[in-house]
Simulated scan of single mutants.
Amino acid sequence: MEIKNLTTEQRNPATIHIDSMSTIDMVKTINQEDQKVALAVETQNKEIARAIDEAAKRYSKGGRLIYIGAGTSGRLGVLDAAELVPTYGIKSERAVGLIAGGKGAMYVAVEGAEDSQDLAKKDLKDLKLNKNDIVLGLAASGRTPYVIGGLDYANEVDALTISIACVKNSEIGHHADIVIEAVVGPEVITGSTRMKAGTAQKMILNMISTGVMIKQGKVFENIMIDVKPTNSKLIDRACRIIKTTTGVSTQEARSTLEKANNDVGIAIVMLKTDSDLNQAKKLLKTENGNVGEVLNKQLAN
């Protein structure tokens, strides 16, 4: 399909006169359009759930979450990858964001980079892509050559491929194992896909990466327990997490965190199972670091 015929390139009849609206009407109009985003994402719930399940399987085998995209889509992928590291305490190499044109394209557009399929293949080869990896191809228009090239190469090495677009029957969808297409409709400003399309992609990435992390045991109840207490604010947060989940005093939470070498998950297991550091580590090892699984089994006995 020609780019001019894509949903993302159509004029929005509700905003044709946005340039002459009062500021409050402008804001209301944009907000009304934004409310359509969550509903569009909702239509893709089954495919998003499938993406989480399949990605979690590969991630648990040592695979990586690798995001590829250009422009806004690429920046959103880089952002999601970067935020997983401090949020869930994973190593930076386990979540990688690739943007057409390289790191500099995060700030200044690199002309022509998104039109190269070979560039994406080179970027993935440099990462030594393997069959346990997960490649998430992002393109609001669903047709970016850089993303297509990356997905094709990922398929060659049997990596899991997931496409995320904001048009139906997207071109990138023909190159992916799992196809996610959240059609948000024409943008408030014609073709400005950093708006509704960008929001939809951000929501979908939040769901997928959070779901994968939950399935890795990075969340206990609804609390992120692999946060790394590297400064005073995070130490305070870690103590509050321990206190909330175990019912101990602030002082005992801090003391146990120190004994656990600043590992929140280990501290929780120590307190909930009345075990020492080595015992807690062994318990967690048997359940691949999943605190919830450890506690379910220990408390059931």
Rank of each mutant, 00 (worst) to 15 (best):
M106P: 04
E181D: 04
I30C: 06
D177W: 04
M1E: 03
V78W: 08
T29C: 15
Q117W: 10
A120E: 09
E293V: 15
V291T: 14
K215V: 01
I30M: 15
A82G: 04
I134W: 10
K233W: 03
I172R: 06
L299W: 10
Y107M: 15
K121R: 15
Y153D: 10
T245Q: 14
I214E: 02
E293I: 14
A182Y: 02
A51K: 04
K272Y: 03
V27S: 06
K125I: 14
N222Y: 06
L160K: 05
D115T: 13
T250V: 07
T15A: 13
N5K: 11
V179G: 00
M213T: 00
R50K: 14
L119V: 09
V110W: 06
I148Y: 07
V188F: 09
A197V: 05
K36C: 00
T250H: 07
I223E: 12
G265D: 05
G101W: 09
L76V: 09
I268D: 11
E221R: 14
V291N: 06
L84Y: 04
V264H: 02
K215D: 03
Q117V: 15
Y88E: 04
L119S: 15
A120R: 07
K61S: 13
N301M: 08
R237P: 01
I90V: 14
S170A: 14
L84A: 05
I235Y: 02
V167E: 02
M270V: 07
E187Y: 00
L76F: 11
N169K: 08
R64W: 07
V41F: 03
K168A: 08
S275N: 13
N169E: 12
G150K: 08
I68T: 10
I48R: 03
K103Y: 11
H174M: 09
V264Y: 04
A260R: 03
A300P: 02
A200D: 01
D276A: 09
K46E: 13
G150A: 12
V147P: 06
I16N: 08
M270P: 10
V85A: 10
K282V: 04
E252V: 06
I189E: 05
I178Q: 02
V264N: 02
I268W: 12
K272W: 06
A51E: 02
N130H: 14
D274Q: 15
Q216M: 15
V147Y: 11
V85M: 06
T23V: 13
M1A: 12
A55V: 00
E258V: 12
R75T: 05
G292N: 10
Q35V: 00
L205R: 01
I16K: 14
